[in-house]
Amino acid sequence: MSESAIEVAGLTKSFGSVTAVDHLSFSVDRGEIFGLVGPDGAGKTTTVRMIAGVMRPDAGTIMVDGVDVVTDPEAVKPRVSYMPQRFGLYEDLTVDENIRFYAEIFEIPRKLRIERAERLLAASNMLQFRQRLAGQLSGGMKQKLGLTCALIHAPRAVLLDEPTTGVDPVSRRDFWRILFGLRADGVTILISTAYLDEAERCSRLALLNEGRVLHCDTPASLKAKMPGAMLAVISPSMRDARDLVAKLPGVENVLLVGDGIHIHVDDAARRIPELTAALNAAGIVFEPVRQVIPSVEDLFVSLTEREEKAA
């Protein structure tokens, strides 16, 4: 039983002309938190669905806990838990009723269910909401309830598809605390996310883009591939700001984001005063330059640009 918890090889899935997942290969070790990171449409959901056995791949193999998911999807279902990106519980059932339903489907003895529900709800600060309809919970609480239901049958592996998107910071912290607890119990966790700060908490990451794995490594090694820092400038004349900043020394690249620009620089401490001076000199209106956590997009742009330069 030393093989990987999840082993994916050559996984491919197309929808018409769109190849959502393209010869994807990676493996997840037992008891690790493995992150699937990628921008919208990278193929995260499709990958997780195929591993959960709810979607058939066009090609490739998936082994979960020694079970071949492609040939026998039903065999994997009692062992893993899947938490879809879209809330999948019954909004017209209460927290307790949802938990009970999933516990019964997985044939969990009553005593065990009561005990686990108590513990899981306590861990996510949800005990006082047990009688509330799931539809009346906040976004964060919904996700925590989803996780509770997913964990009620003590699965060997948990597959979470963007579980914290749109979740408040407090709930997010609860969520991750539970995940770390699970890892300590030896549960394998596969989580997809579009947040890089979350990705950093994973033991390993696969960076996904257009259905392919760009990099698969620990967060530290991935970050090492993107040295320097990310600065943000909010400005009404962001295009002018971009054109100006792009020519300055120490700037690797500039990206338009929402209401401003993200600037990848080699050294934050040295470049912030230089940038501020240059923008002031050009008469551009802007809010103070600050350092930000690089987003997944930032990481992708800088990694793909580096690859292009190297080529």
């Binding site: 009692p78 879809p84 489907i105 997985f106």
Partner: peptide, 13 residues
Amino acid sequence: ERGTMELLVSTPI
């Protein structure tokens, strides 16, 4: 339509 089927089909039912 409500998106509850995706979770349901991932169970052993």
